[in-house]
Amino acid sequence: MNNQPVIACQDIHKKFGQTEVLKGVSFDVFNSEVIVIIGPSGTGKSTLLRCLNLLTIPDQGKVWLEGEEITAPKVDINVVRQKMGMVFQDFNLFSHLTAIDNINVGLEKVCHFKKNEANEKALMHLNQVGLVDKKDLYPGQLSGGQQQRVAIARALAMDPVVMLFDEPTSALDPELIGEVLIVMKNLAKSGMTMIMVSHELGFAREVSNRIIFMENGVIGEQGSPEKLFTNPQNARTAQFLHKINELYGSTEEEQIAGKDVL
């Protein structure tokens, strides 16, 4: 296995109007690595993720997937995107299709699978996320956690080499976060290369190989979870991690109190 990064970006810049959100971000991700990107809101974490599969086109900078430069002019981005799975904060399931058809549509219309082959594969991936019994339900009939798991299955069905998660649990009720994190943990264990933007520090600490702390449109610091949590180099990193721990603590208490009131 050569030591070429699965996905790499160099000097990514992105401006929205007058605001420069990304001011020169570069990093590599190697096979089977689980990367969690953390940082204050507005530092461009989601933008960075969307620059990796060119859903957002960077103003400057390059991105490579398995050694191929995907920001080069003649690249067919649709073919490239088949190798990168993305999971969104708002799930974005196709609301007019059942759970299983959400997965089928990509297999049939993009990968040109035959109907029964697609169905078989879709069932397998639904099974992977534990939702085979919900296959004929529409997204509107599923809970948030179930929708997100279907979304993960939908992305996995394309057999990507890397999975991108944009705050996958931020829109979920706390009770439902667990079921999604379990799926993601298993995915990580199976060796999938994952890049995740998340506030789930517990998950980051437990599962990730490397945490990237972003601040002001650049990478403030990156390193293993142990390093960042116990001995961060950057003062801002320490401050952020401390605040988040505090915040999460009080939020949990508030929620428990709230439940009693309701």
Binding site: N53, L55, N78, V79, V80, R81, Q82, M84, G85, M86, F88, D90, N92, L93, F94, S95, V105, G106, K109, V110, A151, R154, A155, M158
Partner: peptide, 13 residues
């Protein structure tokens, strides 16, 4: 926009 993004992310033109 989310629907279009999800579709494009799958590799649809």
């Amino acid at each position: 926009l989310g629907q279009m993004m999800a579709a494009r992310a799958l590799g649809m033109s």
